[in-house]
Write a protein that binds this DNA or RNA. Sequence first.
DNA 1: CAATTCTTGTCGAATTATTAACAGGATCAA
DNA 2: TTGATCCTGTTAATAATTCGACAAGAATTG
Lengths: 222, 222
Amino acid sequence: MTLRGRKKGETVPQGVVGRLPVYFRYLTELELAGVERVSSAQLGEALDFTAAQIRSDLSYFGSFGQQGYGYNVAELLDQVKQILGIKQKYAMVLVGAGNLGKAIGSYEWFRAEGFEIEAIFDVDPHLIGNRHGGCIIRSVDELTSYLKEHPADIGIIATPKAAGQSVCDLLVEGGVDSIWNFSPTHLTVPDHVLVEDMHLTDSLLRLVFRLNERRAGDGETD
Amino acid sequence: MTLRGRKKGETVPQGVVGRLPVYFRYLTELELAGVERVSSAQLGEALDFTAAQIRSDLSYFGSFGQQGYGYNVAELLDQVKQILGIKQKYAMVLVGAGNLGKAIGSYEWFRAEGFEIEAIFDVDPHLIGNRHGGCIIRSVDELTSYLKEHPADIGIIATPKAAGQSVCDLLVEGGVDSIWNFSPTHLTVPDHVLVEDMHLTDSLLRLVFRLNERRAGDGETD
DNA sequence: CAATTCTTGTCGAATTATTAACAGGATCAA
DNA sequence: TTGATCCTGTTAATAATTCGACAAGAATTG
């Protein structure tokens, strides 16, 4: 078992990180469907990747398959969970209790997989004090003092664009060093802080660009 | 003006497509702030890209800057809008009026930029008939007949995992060939159909993976 | 048990993406 | 106007990623 290129400090390529959750999702479906074994060719077929890519991706972390057999679904799923780090719990705080914040806060999957939203904050006095899920919505003024008492692994920013950076600064100051950002703005953070962006607008614009690219391509003669 | 590699049928690299919306977003901010000119170095600094990359990206579509000056913000923004194709309107249908669907349906930015949600569908009898935004929520049974009368450019899938593929099939059958998918499943579609995925779960898992990668890295001695 | 069929993990080639460097030209200051 | 500075668009080099191919080994069949 060589763990290709995974010497100390070496990071896993972006593309691999992007595909791991896809594998996780599909393997979960397979296990639920009672499928016992699967080959890289079958995975590739179902997920629109090449078989070589899937084998190559997995080989960054070890050898989980068997020649002539493929992968045992349950076992591979377990390994992928291990790799992704979802065998432990994570404490999250959510800032922004608007429509999007509420949608995120009601997403059952998080709790089921050990991602616990432990507190919700907003600036709107009409929302503060309301319950949502198991949480009372607190004033964002309390964010710093809350974090002092209850450290969080992940901060979720679901505010409008204008508030994004300042909320981010509060979170970072409060010791949160992993940020899941739904606010449509580019966040500036210190080096040790991770930001994962979830920009609805960007995603839609990518779709529209490709839509137009396709339409333009259709009109061409050669 | 060479339009690097943009001969007939050639597609723009993934990375470039991914960054265009970021440029759009930031240029909009700059214009709003009254900034008149900007250089690739400044853009890069603000958005964490190299200046070379930004110039290289833009050069796929033309020459929009001026030596010794940089880019005129308003003009470049206009060009980027042109490139992305957001100077026209798009008709969208939204399937799924749960928490996430409602959040998407209430996102003001869409309407402001010409993305019009023209109809909303769901399976839940409790929701059908309700108003949301300007739309009455209809039964998903009416989706096919609706699309026959009102063709849509983009279909938004905001259903649970289980319904994702079947709703997708209905949309495709109804002539929708660009799909914005929030349902946490991999959609299988014909070649001519575009899918842009917006998987909350995948995004969170990527963040968690990198979080653990960092934690592991911190503990290393050499 | 031997022969055949599968399928992995890995290597190296090919492709794709990023970046540093620079020529050419505009701007700016005096 | 002149010289110094600035900045683009492009090219060439570098880096990263993807993919086909294959040796090696397990499973399966007769």
